[in-house]
Simulated scan of single mutants.
Amino acid sequence: MSRIALFPGSFDPFTKGHEDIVRRGLHLFDEIIVGIGRNASKQRYFPLEQMIGWIEQTFQDAPQVRVVAYDDLTANVARQLGARFLLRGLRNTTDFEYENGISQVNRFVYEEVETVFLITSPHLAPISSSIIRDLHRYGQPVDSFLPYKLKE
């Protein structure tokens, strides 16, 4: 049986920190599905289709990584995709508190799913999508935080 993990998030944008979690996760899982969840209460900064393309470009050397977009509960999507694992990165204790609650709810919705947490590599821990969006919005360069080049 293949070990399939869903790596869910809004990925607005997908950062070098996210890439690090996926690449390290490839040592644990046979396939990783990067799932871009749609959040009705948030307006995307970077267009969804463009982000899918950038993530696919990032992992063109890793055929065991694919990208999907979804609009459902993450646990339901994992079940539909045959993923028995949810992969999540933790930068700090605040992330843990938030992710712990979500992982419990995901187990309630899909009893067979396990959440696997990887600690972010120290040099990538300060990176967050919201900080990158703010920098970009105000004209600051952000390519050093991303595994692809933005078209300015």
Rank of each mutant, 00 (worst) to 15 (best):
F108W: 11
L73A: 04
T15A: 09
V105R: 04
V113D: 01
P8E: 07
G37S: 08
V116P: 00
V77Y: 04
V22E: 02
N106A: 08
D95K: 08
I127N: 02
S41A: 13
L90I: 13
Q64G: 11
Y110W: 06
Y45T: 13
P13I: 01
Y98W: 12
R133W: 01
I127C: 07
I52R: 12
I52M: 13
F108E: 12
H18K: 10
D72E: 15
A69T: 15
D71I: 11
L90D: 10
T120F: 04
I132F: 05
R84M: 05
E114D: 13
L135I: 14
T115H: 04
Y70A: 05
L135Y: 12
R133F: 00
G53I: 08
V77Q: 07
S128C: 14
V68H: 06
R38Y: 13
Y138H: 15
P47Q: 13
E19T: 07
E31S: 14
K149S: 11
W54A: 08
K151H: 12
E19D: 11
S144N: 15
I36Y: 03
E31H: 15
I132L: 10
M1L: 14
I55F: 08
L150K: 03
E111A: 09
G35A: 15
F11W: 08
E56W: 09
F46H: 05
V116C: 03
S144H: 14
R88E: 05
P47T: 10
F85G: 00
I55H: 03
K149R: 15
R23G: 09
S129W: 02
G17T: 02
Q64N: 15
V142M: 05
E19A: 11
S128Y: 10
T15G: 08
E19V: 04
V67Y: 01
A75M: 10
A78H: 03
K16C: 14
I102D: 00
P122Q: 12
T58P: 00
R137I: 03
I132V: 15
Q43A: 14
T58W: 02
L87D: 00
A62P: 02
I52S: 02
D134S: 12
V113L: 04
F85W: 06
R66F: 09
R133Y: 05
Y138R: 03
G89S: 11
K149N: 08
G53W: 09
W54V: 04
K16M: 08
A125V: 13
R107Y: 00
E56S: 14
V34P: 02
R107G: 01
I21L: 15
R44V: 05
I32T: 06
Y45N: 08
F108L: 11
D30I: 07
R3M: 12
S129I: 03
N76E: 03
E97R: 14
H27Q: 15
L146Y: 07
L124H: 07
L90R: 05
D95T: 12
S121T: 14
S2Q: 13
T74Q: 01
V77N: 00
